[in-house]
Nucleic acid binder design. Structure first.
Lengths: 359, 359
DNA sequence: CTGAAAGCGCTTACAG
DNA sequence: CTGAAAGCGCTTACAG
């Protein structure tokens, strides 16, 4: 191992001051172009490498942000790409991490990573872990909104988007419209309504009082579409599950289809759910969209290659990512106001798994 | 913005030396348990946060490795998870990055990220970019083997695995066995053989002389299976494509199926390819596996939810990841020997898209 | 425009 | 076992 070449060595070799070398590295200051070029060539020849730890120690900044998601799932890849693009455009480097199943270790690890700030996508379960830890870097939370959170927050229009697509199913004549991805916390109440122990109205009241959590808000949108049309959902067709994964939705849908008349439409709260539901329908010999129409949410690439292709909600990821990064940038630059909230728009992407207009 | 609390502030407040505080932080040295506990509580109360840049500047190490892949694709997620696990087990943090379509920028960015070493998964196209840049941190290359590379290298048994699965198709009676994912560099030669301008033997000779590149080695395995059985592949059924993505394989397979008798089996060089091929077959009314059998490679989760489920090669990712990290660890600790090479084993995972034994 | 010097917050010999 | 001091490699006022 050779001894490290420092700015001092370069200065001596090039016959200039340390300050001048620093200016060359940072493309700052003023000097004759020849000098700049000469110093640069000395650096190249000597194999000089900037020590970023030394720079960060001095400046107090790393110009790197971290992005943390629970695990790598299709939707997060789009999210990460969009945020990375926003960060790179402003000269920031990006590091990506997952915390799934090891939140305490991750929070510990994150403190040893040299970043100026973080964009976090917590899950309902991990939310409190972040809040109650010593996490104290500038942070913007994306996805899950929580009133307990003291971070800036960017979220999708969960409620409105699902209400819209549910409404489209109802308005095009579907009468057995189901939902997949409702909060697990409602599971027992829904069961109680099914068995007649409590009323639909009580359940609807509870649903309309929910104010946070993507699963809750999406389910609220689902119910609202019915209520606004003077209808009530068929609770037998509501699947409570917050894993939102293909395997889970496949299995649960298979079970559901064994015990009851199939729905004529399923509002799936994510595309991953929708893919599992579609697969389950196919394995039971149900045709999509003739027998069952299916919609997703997120507009992941995979939805373009299912058979049939998947109708979905596009959550305006670019707006989402840009807003999140801009908020973080302000925090990193010292802004110290109260937590802010931004909700993005959405678009319906109609593909072959639905036939809204062709009912 | 409050002034940062340093080790010095903590020492003064706790009435101990800086050295003692450092020992508490690093759980090192020897002191009375009470002292350790007292200093810890002072740190907590004052909100002390270790400055990792200062530590790294002093120690010359960050205890963080970077993992770089072209883009987030299903297979890479498994790879990243496996490597992360290996790194965490040895007390290393992990940062993850993609370089797709911006290799020079990434190489630049990587030098500003505080890491001790990198695990790179280059593509055929990016390989030279890494070699010819000023990339000089300890590095292990995974995936693509290249003789020009001066890094340690871990690769899959590309050739052997594909030869094995191709052989299974041939031995179970398939006579129109195609391949998807062959190197694009062979496209014109294959075309020349089809049109009679050159011979199959000349092509086979060229294929058997290839020594690197995953696409080349997998295609070599495909050809070897035929040759060892005294057979010759039907070149019409070979698709050259190194994108290895679902969308591309879907489109190319649709085109292929328009112009010729379908194959009775397709050896796909990745699961993502296989999913596109399967989708294309379905859209042409071909049944899998009755009309066309399909195999993949990589054992990504998605293959468990296709319809039918996908037969694939499992590339022993744990072995792959552990070996790569261990090699990197040795390099980071100063080992300076010649580049090393390790090839992992493989397993065939039989699912419903094939029927080797039931031909 | 350039140079000498201080200092970021740690760790680590070294002395006590 | 603990303390005082040097120094990692930069950047940044400051003086010339």
């Amino acid at each position: 191992m050779r001894k490290r070449v420092t700015i001092k060595d370069v200065a001596r070799e090039a016959g200039v001051s340390i300050k001048t070398v620093s200016n060359v590295i940072n493309d700052s200051g003023s000097m004759r172009p020849e000098t700049r070029k000469r110093v640069q060539s000395v650096m190249d020849r000597m194999g000089y490498q900037l020590n970023v730890s030394a720079r960060s120690l001095k400046t107090g900044r790393t110009k790197v942000i971290g992005i943390a998601v629970e695990e790598f799932r299709p939707f997060f890849l789009h999210l990460i790409n969009a945020i990375s693009e926003a960060a790179h455009a402003k000269g920031y480097g990006v590091i990506i991490n997952t915390y799934g199943g090891r939140l305490p270790e991750f929070i510990q690890e994150a403190s040893t990573l040299a970043t100026d700030g973080w964009i976090l996508h917590p899950t309902p379960k991990s939310r409190n872990g972040f809040i109650h830890s010593s996490w104290n870097k500038p942070t913007v939370q994306v996805g899950e909104y929580s009133s307990a959170v003291h971070f800036d927050n960017v979220a999708m229009s969960n409620r409105a988007a699902i209400e819209y697509v549910t409404g489209r199913f109802l308005d095009s004549g579907c009468r057995r419209v189901g939902a997949f991805g409702a909060p697990e916390s409602l599971s027992s109440v829904i069961h109680a309504v099914r068995s007649g122990e409590t009323t639909s109205q009580a359940l609807l009241d509870q649903v309309s009082s929910m104010t946070e959590g993507a699963a809750s808000l999406r389910f609220q949108g689902f119910c609202d579409a019915f209520v606004k049309r003077g209808m009530i959902p068929d609770w037998d067709l509501v699947c409570c599950d917050e894993v939102w994964a293909t395997s889970k939705s496949f299995e649960m849908t298979c079970t559901m289809l064994e015990s009851m008349t199939p729905p004529d439409a399923m509002v799936c709260f994510t595309d991953e759910i929708a893919i599992g539901v579609m697969h389950a329908c196919a394995s039971r010999g149900l045709r999509v969209p003739e027998d069952v129409q299916i919609s997703g949410h997120d507009n992941i690439d995979e939805g373009r290659f299912t058979n049939p292709t998947l109708t979905t909600i596009d959550p305006s990821l670019r707006e989402y990512a840009n807003t999140a990064f801009d908020m973080l940038l302000e925090r990193m630059q010292g802004y110290d106001g109260a937590p802010r909230f931004h909700m993005t728009g959405y678009t319906l992407v109609e593909r072959d798994s639905t036939r809204f207009g062709r009912g």
